[in-house]
Write a protein that binds this DNA or RNA. Structure first.
Lengths: 124, 124
DNA sequence: TATAACTGTAATTTAAATTATTACAGTACA
DNA sequence: TGTACTGTAATAATTTAAATTACAGTTATA
């Protein structure tokens, strides 16, 4: 997103972005799909295609990006937590932990609401 | 820690705790080592040994536990991030992300400072 | 004082999750 | 009509996390 904000006038392709991140272009395209569904970027197929921001970076909060990237999960995951249901604590722990994790996610989101992509971009 | 708070009068052993968590006792003992270094618990070796809280659960904040469990890392990790140093963004991104991640960690810790182990324990 | 039941920790194996790769249909430009 | 892209699925390779095994050291107690 920093790259897209810096080069707003250009269609940036997944190979270029992947080269900056030093990861595989397919991973980049997968992530861009999420950002596109969230209406932060648009894409153009075909030769000289790529992606670019739809919105002014001043109106994009880091929390917007975070929310799209994170999906429905909480940051601290319970996916591998399968406590013993015959234990007084185990049988209830996940619902109680989930409440805390939602609180944590909220605090992260509130922190990231204070930062715009424009501000972040200007550090480069 | 919930178990230890509920059964403060007993030495709780790693097999029992592991059975509640439904994980391997060795993992439990490794994690208990961190909590012990942080002076939240004490351990007793030998037969009928185990671990127990040192402090009153009213004086243990969830942030205390979180800090010990998390170690020196930030919650959102950069460990696999090796961006392209010949890219204007890539060469600087990790230091800028790290600043944000420290801010995020701070906000999580502040959230967890508002909750005591005693309060959490009382949900069970 | 021997045995059983623990902690503490290292080394290794196994399983799970992540990332990379390959492949290809579809689209747009020149 | 060829080239360079997106979009997406399937699979392979790699990395990380967890489980397992092992064992030295400690303590209670029969």
């Amino acid at each position: 997103m920093t790259l897209l904000a810096l080069y707003r006038d250009q269609w940036m392709n997944s190979v270029l972005i992947a080269s900056s991140l030093n990861i595989n272009p397919v991973l980049v395209r997968r992530e861009l799909t999420l950002l596109k569904k969230g209406n932060l970027i648009e894409s153009k197929e075909g030769k000289n295609g790529g992606v670019r921001l739809i919105k002014d970076p001043n109106t994009i909060l880091l929390s917007d990006i975070f929310n799209l990237a994170k999906g429905e999960e909480t940051v601290l995951s319970l996916s591998k937590n399968t406590p013993n249901p015959s234990c007084r604590v185990g049988k209830q722990i996940n619902e109680n932990l989930m409440l805390i994790m939602k609180t944590i996610d909220d605090s992260i989101i509130n922190t990231l609401k204070l930062k715009t992509l424009e501000e972040f971009k200007n550090k480069f």
